[in-house]
Structure formats: structure tokens, C-alpha cells
Design a protein around this nucleic acid. Sequence first.
DNA 1: AACAATACTCTACATTTGTAGAAACAAAAA
DNA 2: TTTTTGTTTCTACAAATGTAGAGTATTGTT
Lengths: 123, 123
Amino acid sequence: MKLSKTEEQVMQYLWKLNKAFMKDILSEFPSPKPATTTVATLLKRMTDKGFVNYKLYGKSREYYPLIKKTDYFSKHVNGLIKNFFNNSATQFASFFTSETNLSVTELEELRKLIDSQIKEQKK
Amino acid sequence: MKLSKTEEQVMQYLWKLNKAFMKDILSEFPSPKPATTTVATLLKRMTDKGFVNYKLYGKSREYYPLIKKTDYFSKHVNGLIKNFFNNSATQFASFFTSETNLSVTELEELRKLIDSQIKEQKK
DNA sequence: AACAATACTCTACATTTGTAGAAACAAAAA
DNA sequence: TTTTTGTTTCTACAAATGTAGAGTATTGTT
């Protein structure tokens, strides 16, 4: 099961807030905000799909994500890689560095990251 | 305008083949192959959306992509980055290196890539 | 206690997507 | 030339998605 684009948006807010009531989510939306019922519907669907759960506080629900952003994401990215780069992460990386117009500073940062990643794994 | 998942699949084949008749595309599909009419519908929709065009050969059409894979893709990835990493490519890269379980060799390759990228940009 | 603000469920409806049959037609094969 | 095969358009239809009104319950406010 998968989230639709809009549901993903709501998920985004949930990840950011960790937990939130309707109104918190609503106030995250930029104008023009969707109708409350729209968000309610989305939350219901997301709950049905098993991505979200909630704690009851009286009548109100405090929603929280059931999936970590990174987890959801790595699935996502892996699908992407599989689909577009015949399953080669390096190929993807290559594409990524050349096409994502990172600045030199960013690239250097990235290299640092990779270095520590390498050290990490060589342990 | 955007391609749906299945349309993306067909696009994939088109990118691979450069140009193709119905049957070529059809034969790319793994079993169970979809009905020809299904693929026909998809191609029509893709043409309508402006992602594909064709050359007529008698009655048959030789389809070809109007968008380069990398172009389509960078848009895609940029959307992804925007959506999930508050528009920070470095954040994404960081995620990418730590979560995509690349091997040391792959990481080293990647570093090499970044290095040349840096050199490239410093010019 | 009466009212206003909230949150939730139900219902609804237009679009988009996945999938394919039926019909039309042309090119290739028999 | 009659038949078969491939290709396309039309039509169809169910599921998913985006969006929200109506109605109902609840809680905070005068």
C-alpha cells in the first residue's frame, strides 16, 4: 500500500510535528488551506492504509505516524533506483551528482559524508 | 503534466528502445503481458500528455519519447528532494549515502565521481 | 443552559488510472 | 481475393484520488 501525493503531504507534516491534532496539521498547510473535511478524509484514508494511528483525548485524536520518514523513504528511493537505473545505486549516484546542480561546497560536504561512511563500513 | 506509474513503465521501454512499434513495446513486457489495447490506450494517453510522439509508417506508428530520461528524471528527483528534504539536496545526499547500503567499493567510486564533479565546477 | 467552534463520519462527485472488449481497417499471408 | 493478424480508436467500467458539503457529536464560551 502506498500514499497518494496529497496524503504524502500530510505525512510530511506529521513527521515534522511527531504528533498532531487536526488543527495543527491544518495550520501547517499554506493558503489556500483545504477544507477541514478534506484533511479529515485524508487522515482517515491514511489510517485505513495503516500509515497513521492516533491516541484519543476525549473526542479529539492526536495523530502520529506509524512509519519513520527514512523507512518510508528508503523504500521509495529504492523503487526509484530500481525503476530508472536498472537497480544500480551507483548509476543513480552518478546521475545524482551530475544532475542535481549541487554547489562546490555542497559537493565537498557530500564527499566528507562519504568518507565517514567509508570509514564506518571499513570498521 | 505527469506520467502515471504504468505509463512510466512504457516510457522506460521507449527510452530503452529509442523508438518502437507497438509490438516492440509489447514484447518488452514480461508475462503476463497486458492486452494490446491496454498498451494502445497508454500510448494514446502519453501522446496526449505530450510525452510521446510517432512517425507514421503506412498505418503503423513508430513511437518515440519526446523527453530525455535524464530530464524527466531530474524533475522527478528534484520534486522528491523538495518534498522530503525541505529542498536541501545535501540533506538528501546524506540520507542517500547512509540509507542506500552502498558497498565500500561503490562509495569509493562515488567519491571519485564527486571529485571530478568538483574539479569540473571549479573550472 | 444555550450557543459557537471543532472534529469526525457519511455521502458525493469529478478526475485519473488500470484494464480491456468491440469495431474498424489496413497489411500480410494463404 | 479471402483470411488472418496487427494497430488503432471508442467505449466502458471499477478503483483510487482530490475535494468538500451535511449532519452529528463534543467541548469550550457566554
